[in-house]
């Protein structure tokens, strides 16, 4: 058994799987971070991912190309994000509640669209597995030839690269640009931001739309990246895990990256170890990533400090 464990932890494929399983969470979480810093709770990423997943599958099916799929995925994610923005920013409704409603709606809408597009008209249900054009791994020249590291990091799906480079990009934008300053000020002190002429409404809308775009891509990574079809409720809680990672990482890009990596690692471990037939029931391993996240949260992360205006609708005084 010990040798088998060593074999797992020394195999390149294992670490490549860790990166692959981390990527969708990372994409969504980096998108979510931007809206979170602008004061919007991103509990609705689950639904946006699901919309991205169906958008990717449908777009890829109709246009016959992966790029078309990605475009549809982004639009579908942003569509849900727009609704979410209307609820949070314009209406000023409770954000978590709106998110719960939209997640439910995305579950229904994605399954309905799937049935509309792919089902057998006579029976009314999807009778055969439809496969659509899907992404292929791209080996990066030179970097991909580095022994070990090349196979782990540089022979992945294009969206995986995007997920990885989104970490420094989001960090740079948030902390080194005026846009980032605007976003953070809107999340920390919207009234002050408003006084100096920043449009709180516009910044929040754009931030949420960016979340939708990224979560949509994360969903596409599931449907036309790792598979070549859509499955009902295929996000399976990953949007929630991405949200967890944001809190886990204390709203900092690097922390969030580590949080998603921890989950990806636990996920990769459980996938491999299940096959070993250890005297530990496999249900334990399925629960393992969630257990690790919960324990890490309680033991190491401690109390979270939210962006000051998190979840609060903005209203100009005197209105």
């Amino acid at each position: 058994m010990f040798e088998q464990l060593v074999e797992i932890f020394t195999s390149v494929a294992f670490y490549a799987a860790v990166i692959r399983l981390t990527a969708p969470l990372l994409l969504a979480a980096m998108g979510g971070l931007v809206a979170e810093r602008a004061g919007i709770i991103t509990f609705g990423m689950e639904g946006m991912m699901l919309m991205g997943a169906i958008g990717g599958a449908v777009g890829s099916y109709y246009t016959g190309s992966v790029l078309g799929g990605l475009a549809f995925a982004m639009l579908a994610g942003m569509f849900l994000a727009l609704l979410y923005g209307v609820m949070c920013v314009s209406v000023g409704a409770n954000q978590v509640v709106s998110a719960v409603a939209l997640n439910l709606g995305a579950l229904g809408l994605s399954s309905t669209i799937f049935a509309l597009v792919f089902s057998n008209r006579a029976v009314g249900v999807v009778t055969e597995v439809v496969s659509v054009p899907s992404m292929q791994p791209v080996k990066i020249p030179l970097l991909g030839d580095i022994p070990i590291l090349g196979d782990i990091l540089f022979n992945q799906l294009p969206l995986v690269y995007l997920a990885l480079i989104s970490v420094p990009i989001v960090w740079f934008v948030l902390y080194r640009t005026t846009i980032g300053l605007k976003i953070r000020s809107v999340g920390e002190h919207p009234h002050a931001a408003d006084t100096v002429g920043i449009s709180v409404v516009r910044v929040r809308y754009l931030s949420v739309l960016f979340t939708g775009l990224m979560a949509g891509l994360a969903g596409a990574l599931l449907s036309i990246g790792m598979l070549n079809t859509f499955q009902e409720n295929m996000s399976a809680g990953r949007g929630f895990i991405a949200y967890t990672a944001i809190i886990f990482g204390k709203w900092e890009p690097l922390g969030i990256f580590l949080g998603t990596l921890l989950f990806g690692l636990a996920d990769a471990i459980q996938l491999r170890i299940q096959a070993l037939n250890l005297p530990i029931p496999y249900q334990f391993w399925v629960a393992f990533p969630y257990l690790v996240t919960l324990l890490a949260l309680v033991l190491f992360v401690g109390k979270a400090t939210w962006p000051a205006a998190s979840g609060q609708p903005f209203k100009r005084e005197g209105k």
Binding site: M87, N94, V97, L104, G105, L107, G108, L116, G124, E232
Partner: peptide, 29 residues
Amino acid sequence: MQIVSGAPVSIIYVIQSLAILFAIAGTVI
């Protein structure tokens, strides 16, 4: 509903979701 009319079961999730959104929007506005 699905058997009689061919409208997929998943539509009821959309109905539920919209009902919640309208209800909370109606309360807040």
